[in-house]
Design a protein around this nucleic acid. Structure first.
Length: 569
RNA sequence: UGGGGUGUCGCCAAGCGGUAAGGCACGGGACUUUGACUCCCGCAUGCGUAGGUUCAAAUCCUGCCACCCCAGCCA
């Protein structure tokens, strides 16, 4: 894991597109209309991650929907850590989550909460439920409860403790809290409908006994509320109007409503579900990502091959590109898998508009200009971004010996090749037009040096006689070039089957997903670079500075290889 | 076999009774100081399927089919 992530700029979102409406807007509009459920009220949403892992691009969709909807309605969006299961959670994740949301470009103001803040209130509300004879303390084992829940076609069977007197449940519940019983021995269960076709309504467990150290409340509690009971209360206490979540919670909505309806709460939030994001060639579950981290298959949650926001950040993704991606895939209730190529497209689009370019040579071969004075050095002004003159120029030095990309030279060109080969003219980007005269090779036949003669009339790459130069290649001055270590990241998973990554992900790890190139060269203009920048690299794609330390021996770059590149191999 | 959802181009996705938007991918062309970018052009007689209602149906009705989620004291 690198210590610094310099690539954090919020690259200026060129006219972020107006978010397209979706079915959620329709539902909210109806709620807000006169006579509607929330007529005249302020839209209030929340993003409620469980702090048990890092946020990934799937969460980005939820964040953008939750915060985005609030923004569009001039409402509010809270950030809430849904920390009701201490055995899986940790403070490390809380900080990472906050950082990633800020990086994405969203802010929760002073509305940062923890579900654990409400434990006392939840406890009191549970007592209300018991008093209303809507909940009871069950003494069945987990196995007995499971059996009693029935099957798809047979109804549930009432627990023998279901009709326990209210006073007795109240007493037992208090003693559960006091720590009189062992983990897993008693539960508090709602009394709803054992005949429901929806399992969630067959007397769901509301509280379990669990002795685990909570990252915030420590050992204050040994009973913890279940999601289905806690979530609606959290939403209501925060005055949330619209509780947006993913499709798998549709079945839970009746229970969500039941809790809201049977308790005295300050609001009646409405749950709306949408489809979560799926991307092919990518795994998108915290459980699986954790296995990659703990199995040391990747360097950490922020490994550039990970689909986590911190990984994508190191891979060179900009916040704007991710926001744009999520915005353009839309929101619906269809289980969908978006093409990885679309994510890449959104990045390239942003980088192409906003990234400053710089030259670098990854697989170098020496180019000697035999008619250029050995002691001469020139400086060219090169535009930082052809699309943005306001980004200015940088100075690039030029001399007799340069580094060029090995595959920009071919001793015997294949048909259609129009870069450097003996007898051919090419343009050194922003430098001179040169004509190749030959090359040297080592004993194994590898090209070690390429020779060419430059045309003094073509300074800056211009051709006063208007002759067309078909090929233009990048280069770096060997006198001033800085050595760089470039890390090429291919997709973490092999790509022969788009869905294999999700299905049998451990069997499809690409062993060559990380390649370290130690002898690359970059422009001297990168010395001491502090800001992040993305680099247009060769003829396709970009790479980004993952970390730059001017005092280090070498600059370190990351470049993720697009799937397209993989297919070309 | 119970409950809850979803089915429009290879992938997303508009459409809400008036005769199939857009993006990605793909193919062709132009342009180009990086074979990139940009720009043109092409790409569903068809909306899971079978019927029905209507002057008119992706949109309404009925049946059928397919796929996803649910039997954690996870979220």
């Amino acid at each position: 894991m690198s210590e610094t992530n310099l690539n954090k700029d919020n690259s200026n979102l060129t006219e972020e597109p107006a978010t397209t409406r979706n079915f959620i807007h329709d539902l909210i509009d109806a709620d807000l209309a006169p006579g509607g459920r929330f007529a005249g009220m302020t839209v209030h949403t929340r993003f409620p991650p469980e702090p048990n892992g890092y946020l990934h691009i799937g969460h980005a969709k939820a964040i953008i929907i939750d915060f985005g909807i609030a923004e569009q309605y001039n409402g509010l969006c809270n950030l809430r850590m849904d920390d009701t299961n201490p055995s899986k959670e940790d403070v490390e994740y809380v900080e990472a989550i906050k950082e990633d949301i800020h990086w994405l470009g969203f802010d929760w103001g002073d509305r940062f909460y923890y579900a654990s803040d409400y434990f006392e209130q939840m406890y009191e509300l549970a007592r209300d439920l018991i008093r209303k004879d809507l909940a009871f303390v069950d003494e069945q084992t987990a196995e007995q409860i499971r059996v009693g829940r029935g099957t798809l076609t047979t109804p549930g069977i009432a627990s023998p403790w279901r009709n326990r007197p209210v006073e007795e449940s109240l007493d037992l519940f208090a003693r559960m809290r006091a720590g009189e019983f062992a983990d897993g021995t008693l539960t508090l269960r709602a009394k709803i409908d054992l005949n429901s076709g929806n399992f969630n309504m067959r007397d769901p467990v509301l509280y379990r006994i669990l002795r685990a150290h909570h990252h915030r409340t420590g050992d204050d509690w040994c009973i913890y509320p279940m999601y289905d009971y806690a979530h609606p209360i959290e939403d209501a206490l925060e005055l949330v109007t619209h509780s947006l979540c993913s499709l798998e919670f549709e079945d839970h909505r009746p229970l969500y409503d039941w809790v809201i309806d049977n308790l005295d709460l300050p609001a009646k939030p409405r749950q709306i579900e949408f489809a979560r994001l799926g991307i092919n060639y990518t795994v998108m579950s915290k459980r699986k990502l954790r296995r990659l981290v703990e199995g040391n298959i990747v360097s950490g949650w922020d490994d550039p091959r990970m689909p986590t926001l911190s990984g994508l950040r190191r891979r060179g993704y900009t916040p704007a590109s991710i926001r744009n991606f999520v915005d353009r895939i839309g929101v619906s209730k269809v289980n969908s898998t978006v093409d990885y190529a679309f994510l890449e497209h959104c990045l390239r689009e942003d980088l192409n508009h906003n990234a400053r370019r710089v030259m670098a040579v990854l697989r170098p071969v020496k180019l000697v200009l035999t008619n250029y004075p050995a002691d001469k050095t020139e400086t060219f002004e090169v535009e930082n971004n052809p699309e943005k003159p306001e980004d200015g120029n940088r100075k690039v030095t030029f001399s007799r010996e340069l580094w060029i990309e090995a595959d920009d030279f071919a001793e015997t060109p294949v048909k259609g090749y129009f870069r450097m080969f003996p007898g051919n003219e090419v343009r050194l980007k922003s430098g001179y037009v040169v004509r190749c005269t030959g090359c040297d090779k080592d004993a194994d036949g590898n090209v070690t040096t390429v020779y060419a003669e430059y045309d003094p009339e073509t300074r800056g790459g211009n051709t006063p006689d208007k002759r067309k130069i078909k090929g233009t290649i990048h280069w770096v001055d060997s006198k001033t070039a800085l050595p760089a270590e470039v890390r090429l990241y291919d997709n973490l998973f092999t790509v022969e089957d788009p869905d294999s990554a999700e299905r049998d992900f451990m069997d499809h790890i690409n062993p060559n997903s990380l390649e370290i190139i130690a002898n690359a060269w970059v422009e001297s203009s990168l010395a001491g670079t502090k800001a992040s920048l993305s680099v247009q690299f060769m003829r396709n794609g970009y790479f980004c500075l993952d970390s730059v330390d001017s005092s280090a021996e070498k600059l370190v770059f990351n470049r993720s290889v697009s799937l397209k590149d993989s297919w070309k191999k």
